[in-house]
């Protein structure tokens, strides 16, 4: 079920992977063998406690998308040993969605000390200048 807020920022991953095992590495290693280029790793919040991960590769002059459905709390295998360029994508997904990858720390875009947690989840409602103005919060003193 969707969580309204995650526990306070922890840098260690969840204790045990929940949900069915999702084998990402086998399909990705097939891409590596044909010298494909990693284009992007996209995460989508499906809204029901599941997330979709889309691994986009460019192989033999066409775009190939590998899709996986991940349950919230599952510790995803990292592919950064095969594709070092995947590291930034995985760190970004940790920051913006609060998912976890084995052996990868977040903190790429959002500081660990920040109060903003997993802002791209459907359930989170981060504060913006517009919402602050609507609430009538005054300008900070300087």
């Amino acid at each position: 079920m969707t969580q309204t807020n995650l526990p306070a920022k922890e840098t260690t991953p969840q204790p045990a992977p929940k949900g069915p095992q999702v084998d990402i590495r086998t399909k990705v290693s097939r891409m590596d063998k044909v010298y494909a280029q990693l284009i992007a790793i996209t995460a989508v919040d499906l809204g029901d406690g599941n997330f979709e991960l889309i691994y986009s590769f460019f192989s033999k002059s066409e775009l190939v998308n590998l899709r996986f459905t991940i349950q919230d709390g599952y510790e995803i295998d990292s592919i950064a040993d095969m594709f070092p360029g995947a590291r930034n994508f995985e760190r970004e997904i940790i920051d913006l969605f609060g998912l976890s990858f084995k052996g990868v720390q977040g903190g790429l875009l959002i500081m660990p000390s920040s109060q903003i947690v997993a802002p791209l989840r459907k359930s989170s409602t981060p504060e913006t200048p517009r919402t602050r103005a609507q609430k009538g919060v005054a300008n900070a003193d300087h």
Binding site: A40, V44, S56, N88, F89
Partner: peptide, 22 residues
């Protein structure tokens, strides 16, 4: 590279931007 997912309303479901310098 952009990935856009829409669900038939003004709001979009997801916009993912992958820029070259990333």
């Amino acid at each position: 590279f952009y990935y856009v997912k829409a669900k038939g309303e003004i709001r979009l479901d997801r916009v993912k931007i992958r820029t070259p310098t990333f």
